[in-house]
Amino acid sequence: MIAHLRALFPPFDWHRVIVEPWSADPAISLWIVLMGFFVAAACGLVGNYLLLRRMALVGDAISHSILPGLVLAFLIFRHTNIWTAFAGALGAGFATVLLIEFIHKQSRVKADAAICIAFTVLFAAGVVLMSLLETKGSFHIDAECVLYGEIAFVPLEPPVVWGGIGLGPPSVLRMGGMLVLVLVLITAFYKELLVTSFDPGLSRSLGMNTGLWHYGLMGVLALVVVSAFEAVGAILAVAMLIVPAMFAAQLSNRLPVRLGLTIIHAAVSSLLGYHLSVWLQCSTAGAMVVAGAGLFTAAWVAGLWHTAALRLRSRNS
């Protein structure tokens, strides 16, 4: 039994795990770590607002509804590229949010159950459509890629060349652009997102359209998740939405600080996760989430310890 387990974990060889990835072919390591960072940071920043609005499950729902979105986009446009994928995912994202609200309002189903019904049904519809198209031989999506992503293949993409200079793999550049977009939107509309998340009643009394901000956030969520999709898949994208934000929530009760911590968490978990995957020779995206969860656990324990220490000090004084 123990021998079996030991066989799963190769010995930790400093040179093989830490030095070699950055000396043998640093570009491969760089693009993978950068992609992991972009995905976790963009998802995590949006995830902070999902947590504040108690909408963590909606992130789950949207990431699953992307599958039927991609298939439907193919049916409508008759081919697949990144733009049809964006259109399909965006449509699917809004359809999911609307379906959840419809089920919740028109029946006595509670919100959490409505979310579960909506996204499992949409995901199932996607599976049915996909297998229908596959038997006709006209369409193929790698199911493994949908579920787990293929971040390790990112460096193999033909690089984007601009003015004779290779800039990098297109999916990494796209994800980087998405992170910049999220950062710009959060910075520009910080006060609008803050007040509509904290006090929707006040926001509407001030004449703000809270529905518009809600759907705007959902739109950005759908865009970010579809960009992250090919790297980390539908399931791990949910972790990327929630884990960095939860980590930040353990350490700070100021939103700007939390957003900064989310970015730090994204960078560290991507780097740690990459080396973990080199060490264990396992799925890179999975290892990044495991590393992120490890950081969250450490922050949580540190938070508990800190509270206990404060309590002890106040009791002694």
Binding site: L52, A188, K191, E192, F198, L206, A249, R254, V257
Partner: peptide, 22 residues
């Protein structure tokens, strides 16, 4: 919610600010 007392009171001023104005 991760905001300070000052942040909450400033929300009272939001109605007078333009879109994206701090």
């Amino acid at each position: 919610f991760p905001v300070s007392v000052m942040d909450v009171v400033l929300m009272g001023r939001y109605g007078r600010l333009r879109l994206a104005q701090r």
